Amino acid sequence: MTMAGNNPIATKDFVEILIPQKFPFVMVDTLYSYSETELVSGFTIEKDTIFFANDFFIESGIVEHMAQSVALHTGYQFYLKKQQAPTGYIGSINKLQINQLPKLHDEIKTTVTILQEFGGITLVDIVTKLNNVEIAYGQMKTVLAK
Rank of each mutant, 00 (worst) to 15 (best):
34 Y>H: 14
59 E>L: 11
15 V>S: 00
72 L>K: 05
29 D>G: 04
64 E>K: 03
48 D>P: 05
109 K>I: 01
3 M>D: 00
78 F>R: 10
32 Y>K: 02
46 E>R: 11
67 A>H: 01
16 E>I: 14
2 T>P: 00
44 T>D: 00
38 E>C: 03
133 V>D: 01
102 P>H: 02
146 K>N: 12
82 K>R: 11
81 K>R: 14
141 K>Y: 13
70 V>A: 13
15 V>A: 02
85 A>S: 14
71 A>D: 04
111 T>D: 01
72 L>M: 04
95 K>D: 13
65 H>Y: 00
19 I>P: 06
3 M>G: 00
32 Y>C: 02
48 D>N: 14
136 A>G: 07
11 T>R: 12
17 I>M: 05
66 M>D: 01
128 T>A: 11
76 Y>K: 06
28 V>I: 03
142 T>K: 04
83 Q>G: 09
94 N>L: 14
36 E>V: 12
139 Q>G: 12
87 T>M: 15
26 V>R: 06
94 N>M: 13
60 S>Q: 13
98 I>N: 02
42 G>M: 10
135 I>M: 09
126 I>H: 04
98 I>R: 06
52 F>V: 04
62 I>C: 05
103 K>N: 12
55 D>Y: 07
1 M>L: 10
28 V>T: 02
77 Q>L: 03
68 Q>T: 03
119 G>Y: 09
42 G>Y: 07
132 N>K: 12
39 L>W: 02
50 I>M: 03
140 M>K: 11
67 A>K: 02
48 D>G: 09
33 S>R: 09
145 A>Y: 09
73 H>P: 02
144 L>F: 05
81 K>M: 10
124 V>E: 04
118 F>H: 15
60 S>C: 13
107 E>L: 15
32 Y>S: 01
29 D>C: 04
139 Q>K: 15
2 T>S: 09
97 Q>V: 15
138 G>P: 07
45 I>W: 05
61 G>N: 01
48 D>E: 06
77 Q>M: 09
120 G>K: 07
32 Y>A: 05
107 E>Q: 15
124 V>C: 15
16 E>A: 12
2 T>A: 08
127 V>E: 10
145 A>S: 13
65 H>S: 10
17 I>L: 12
67 A>Q: 06
88 G>R: 06
3 M>I: 08
71 A>W: 06
58 I>A: 04
69 S>T: 06
6 N>D: 07
57 F>A: 03
22 K>T: 06
140 M>S: 12
95 K>S: 14
85 A>Y: 07
131 N>R: 14
99 N>Y: 14
103 K>C: 08
141 K>P: 10
69 S>V: 08
127 V>T: 13
4 A>Q: 11
41 S>L: 06
122 T>H: 03
91 G>L: 13
74 T>L: 13
118 F>P: 02
122 T>F: 05
59 E>Y: 09
26 V>T: 02
131 N>F: 07
72 L>T: 03
48 D>L: 11
64 E>W: 08
123 L>H: 11
98 I>C: 07
56 F>N: 05
20 P>T: 06
67 A>D: 05
142 T>V: 15
101 L>M: 12
5 G>C: 10
42 G>N: 08
28 V>E: 00
3 M>H: 11
17 I>F: 05
117 E>G: 04
6 N>V: 08
141 K>R: 15
85 A>E: 02
81 K>P: 05
